[in-house]
C-alpha cells in the first residue's frame, strides 16, 4: 500500500510534465494540424539556455525565466521559418520538417554544449517527505504540479476570457471566417506556437532535474510520453491533453514501479497502441468521429 501511494504521487508529478507537453502539442495541432515532432528538442534547447543564463547571472530563477522566454521566442521563430504555409502541405511534409528540426536542434545543442549528460539542479529538494515509512512526495513534486497547474490556469483564462483568446480560438476553428472579421490569423498562429514553446520549456525545466539530466536527446523519451498523453486525451482539446498527460504519468509510474523501470518505453508504446486501436478518438473526445 505504501508503495502504491508513493507511485501515485510520483505518477502525478511526472503526469503534470507530460500534461504540459501534451498541451504544447495540442495547442499547435488544433490550430495548424501540425504535430510538432521537434517539441521535445525545442524544450531541451531552452533548458540549455537556462543553464547558460544561470551560470552567467548566478541565479537559478533568472535562468528559469530565461528558459520560458526562450521557449516563447523559439516557438514563434520555428513557426515563422519552418511552418509558415504548413496548411498547404501534405501531413507527411510537416512531419518530416518537424523531424528535421528535431535532428538539427539536438545536433546544434551537441555542438555547443557537448553530448555528455550535465547535471541540472532542481528548484527545490527532491527528497520525498514521508509519513512513517511511507515516502510521499518531495518539494520539487509540489512545485512541478503547482507550476503546471498555474500555467494551465493562465492559458485557460487567456483562451476563454480575453479578446486575444477569443481571436485565437476563432482563428483555430475557422481561419477564413476569422479573417473576414478582421482577425490577423497569421499573427495568432505565431502566438499559439510561441505559447506552446513556453509550455514545452516549462516541462523541460521540471523534468530534466528529476533524474533525467541534461543532454541533447534528454526529451526524446519525454516527448513520446507527452505525445501519448495528447493521444489519450484525443489531441483536440486542451483539457483532454492535460487529463491524458496525468493518466499517462500514473500508468507509467505503476508500470515502472511494479514491473521495472526499463519497461517504461515499452509501456508507453503499449499504452499508445491500445488507446489508438480501441479508442482512436481518445478517452475524452465527444462523439465526433476522427480518422487517425
Amino acid at each position: 500500500m505504501s508503495r502504491f501511494i508513493f507511485l501515485t504521487f510520483n505518477g502525478l508529478s511526472f503526469g503534470a510534465v507530460y500534461a504540459a507537453l501534451a498541451l504544447a502539442l495540442v495547442l499547435i495541432w488544433r490550430t495548424t494540424r501540425v504535430l510538432n515532432f521537434a517539441q521535445g528538442a525545442m524544450a531541451v534547447a531552452t533548458a540549455y539556455v537556462a543553464l547558460s543564463v544561470s551560470d552567467w547571472t548566478g541565479s537559478y530563477w533568472i535562468g528559469f525565466g530565461a528558459a520560458l522566454a526562450a521557449g516563447f521566442v523559439l516557438g514563434a521563430v520555428v513557426e515563422r521559418v519552418a511552418f509558415r504555409g504548413a496548411d498547404r502541405m501534405p501531413p507527411l511534409n510537416t512531419i518530416v520538417i518537424g523531424v528535421g528540426l528535431l535532428i538539427l536542434i539536438e545536433a546544434v545543442m551537441g555542438m555547443l554544449y557537448g553530448s555528455a549528460n550535465r547535471g541540472f539542479p532542481a528548484a527545490y529538494s527532491t527528497r520525498a517527505y514521508s509519513v512513517g515509512s511511507t515516502a510521499l512526495f518531495s518539494k520539487q513534486d509540489v512545485f512541478t504540479v503547482g507550476s503546471v497547474l498555474v500555467l494551465m490556469l493562465v492559458i485557460a483564462v487567456l483562451l476563454t476570457r480575453t479578446p486575444q483568446g477569443l481571436r485565437m480560438r476563432a482563428a483555430a476553428f475557422a481561419p477564413e471566417v476569422a479573417r473576414l472579421l478582421g482577425v490577423r490569423v497569421g499573427r495568432l498562429l505565431t502566438l499559439g506556437w510561441a505559447l506552446s514553446g513556453l509550455v514545452g520549456a516549462l516541462a523541460a525545466m521540471l523534468v530534466i532535474p528529476t533524474g533525467l539530466g541534461l543532454f541533447p536527446q534528454a526529451m526524446d523519451g519525454v516527448f513520446i510520453l507527452g505525445f501519448t498523453g495528447a493521444v489519450v486525451g484525443g489531441l483536440e482539446s486542451p483539457v483532454g491533453a492535460v487529463v491524458g498527460g496525468v493518466l499517462t504519468g500514473l500508468a507509467l509510474s505503476y508500470a515502472s514501479g511494479y514491473i521495472g523501470s526499463d519497461i517504461t518505453p515499452l509501456a508507453a508504446l503499449v499504452l499508445l497502441v491500445v488507446v489508438l486501436l480501441l479508442r482512436p478518438t481518445g478517452l475524452f473526445s465527444g462523439s465526433q468521429v476522427r480518422r487517425v
Binding site: 476563432a170 476569422a178 473576414l180
Partner: peptide, 26 residues
C-alpha cells in the same frame, strides 16, 4: 467592409455571444 460568406460562417465552437463579440474585435 463586412462579408457574410456563403454557408454563413457561424463558428460552431463559439457561443452566440462570442460570435457577436468577434464582430467588433477589430
Amino acid at each position: 467592409v463586412a462579408h457574410v460568406p456563403e454557408g454563413r460562417g457561424v463558428i460552431g465552437e463559439l457561443t452566440v455571444q462570442e460570435n457577436l463579440r468577434l464582430g467588433g474585435l477589430w
